[in-house]
Amino acid sequence: MGQLFLGLINGSFYAVLSLGLAVIFGLLNIINFAHGALYMMGAFIGWMLLNYAGIGYWPALILSPLIVGGFGILLERTMLSRLYHLDHLYGLLLTFGLALIIQGLFRNYYGISGMSYQIPAALSGGQNLGFMFLPNYRAWVVLASVVVCFGTWFMIERTRLGAYLRAATENPVLVGAFGINVPLMITLTYGFGVALAAFAGVLAAPIYSVNPNMGADLIIVVFAVVVIGGMGSIMGAILTGFGLGLVEGLARVFYPEGSAVVIFVIMAIVLMIKPEGLFGRAV
């Protein structure tokens, strides 16, 4: 029971990250390899805000995604937008290069040991739930990610803006003809997807050590999550994220040695049975 709950906490990181990837992929058709690096950057900016500007956790939770989102917009405008007429794989290669640069720079300036980031005072301590000791902060992580995930889902699936977005995904030319600024929408979407990564980064900062490699290992797992869920639906990305967190949590109890690969094994099985992913549309 306690273990399941812990799995859910990990699942929330997977969900927020794969959601960001899915949003970006939906509109730009780009797999954002830099997602892990931007997640790391989000955590680092949270740390910098605290240590250089004395800005605490709560403002950082908003500010850091804004800064990273802005950075993402800059990347999209100056680089990614030049690649839209080419094969999508170039987008993957470009973002891979960007990830190397970002991680390398942070490694040069901040070393590898990592920085410590204290849990905000309001959320320190925890509750004894009888079956487990639940740190308040972890509970907050789950709550915050659920809210963000479903907020995003609502915005995209249930609002007018979301309708434009979905329409632009299907047929950008037609939507453009209706007088909607599609390139701007693409730019903002990228910024938003990246901001989600940064948000996850700030959430992660107090529990994992803030270090330049924190995103590199995570992103590959998230890729697998995305393949399992399929890129088609926002809800698919969210549910798969939480679900795989649970599965991984169970694996840690019953077969800890295999817990690192369980997601990849599931991926292989899904590929054999339903190649387009659990929630995916055929590509």
Binding site: Q3, L6, G7, I9, N10, R138, Y208, M214, D217, L218, G249, R252, V253, P256, E257, G258, S259, A260, V261
Partner: peptide, 10 residues
């Protein structure tokens, strides 16, 4: 499993 970031369940 190595490397690990989340140790909570262990």
């Amino acid at each position: 499993p190595f490397p690990a970031t989340d140790f909570s369940s262990f």
